[in-house]
């Protein structure tokens, strides 16, 4: 029977055969039995159940086949179904492939750690001397200065800066809406390091300076050493004068060093001015920002400004009396003050 009905229903399209096998019990039952797992079908109850199901399926199929025989567009119908099945299989295949690719990429990230290893190939003595050198500008701009493309020192300096910044934020009672102190500190430091490095690298690319991305990262990273020292001192000793002196001295020295290194690798007046001007302005302003954004004294100043005897609304345009909003505020003011 299986052969007969199978023949009857098999259409000429090659992709129809898969559906045929699914729909027809007679042909597929044998195949299923052969392919069945030994463990799954071992109990006799299962066999009985399976048998019954097969029988039912066959009956249904036979009925369907009988009706489909009369149908004129029999092949077309099955063809549609086959197409659908193929499409589904293709989609499932693609999803599976994409998942596999992502998983293997995540795994490769760990395996590819070796790519980064050369940039961490340093000795403690080297790191120490590079830290020292980051504060000593070299006046040699005729010959390209040597810049080591290394990431250990910069990375550690950025993490140190994160820790110092966290300390500054905590002591200044900084309140950050919609975020954590930790996230802000990490975002600020890494954002500055990576962002400014890429920006300067882009500029250097435009003006044809001889520097690679790794060298830029290393240069700017070691330039943060001055920032770390200044911020560590001034977050704990609150003298404005001291800060400005240190800002000019440490920040200035580390900036000068980077500028000198960049100068020696750039040709032409305008490119040098553009590159070094951008870098020094960004670097010095970043230190100012870090100091004043998260500093205790400034916070204290704000606290005294926003004392309890002041009205809680500070940013209403008081100087424009004809504003109706202001009038309503004025009427609200005593009310609020009374509270």
């Amino acid at each position: 029977m299986s052969a007969g009905s199978g023949n009857r229903n098999t259409n000429t399209e090659p992709w129809g055969s898969f559906d045929d096998n699914l729909v027809q019990g007679g042909g597929s039952a044998v195949i299923d039995m052969e392919n069945m797992d030994d463990t799954s079908g071992s109990s006799f109850e299962d066999m009985g159940e399976m048998h019954q199901r097969m029988k039912e399926e066959e009956e249904v199929t036979e009925e369907a086949a009988a009706t489909e025989d009369d149908n004129a567009e029999d092949g077309e119908f099955l063809g549609m179904k086959g197409l659908k099945g193929q499409l589904g299989r293709q989609v499932a295949d693609e999803v599976w492939q994409a998942g596999k690719r992502q998983a293997s990429r995540a795994f490769n990230l760990y395996a590819n750690i070796d790519i980064l290893r050369p940039y961490f190939d340093v000795e403690p003595v080297q790191v120490r001397s590079r830290l020292m050198e980051s504060m000593i500008p070299v006046r040699m701009i005729n010959f390209p200065q040597k810049i080591a493309g290394e990431l250990y020192g910069p990375l550690m300096l950025v993490f140190t800066l994160v820790a110092i910044l966290l300390h500054g934020m905590k002591t200044s009672d900084t309140v950050i809406r919609e975020g954590t102190l930790m996230g802000t500190a990490i975002g600020t430091c890494f954002g500055y390091w990576l962002g400014v490095s890429s920006f300067i690298y882009f500029l250097a690319y435009l003006v044809n300076a001889q520097i690679t991305m790794m060298q830029m990262l290393s240069l700017l990273g070691y330039g943060l050493f001055g920032h770390c020292v200044v911020l560590f001192v001034t977050y704990n000793i609150h003298f404005h004068f001291l800060f400005y002196v240190l800002w000019l001295l440490c920040g200035g020295l580390s900036t000068l060093r980077m500028v000198a290194a960049l100068l020696s690798r750039t040709v032409g007046q305008t490119p040098r001015l553009l590159l070094c001007g951008t870098l020094s302005v960004l670097h010095m302003l970043f230190l100012l920002y870090l100091h004043f954004a998260y500093h205790k004294i400034v916070e204290g100043l704000l606290d005294s400004l926003e004392g309890p005897n002041m009205a809680p609304m500070q940013r209403v345009a008081r100087d424009v009396p004809e504003l109706t909003l202001n009038a309503s505020m004025r009427s609200l003011g005593p009310l609020l003050r009374a509270q």
């Binding site: 961490f120 250990y152 900084t174 950050i176 954590t180 102190l181």
Partner: peptide, 29 residues
């Protein structure tokens, strides 16, 4: 008052800190 350490912050510091140290030690050989 938000200056105090939050639960998530401690958690993140501990785990990400150790992961970074581990990666660093791997990178250093």
């Amino acid at each position: 008052y938000q200056g105090g350490p939050q639960f998530a912050e401690v958690f993140v510091i501990v785990w990400f800190g150790s992961i970074i140290i581990t990666l660093n030690s791997k990178l250093l050989g």
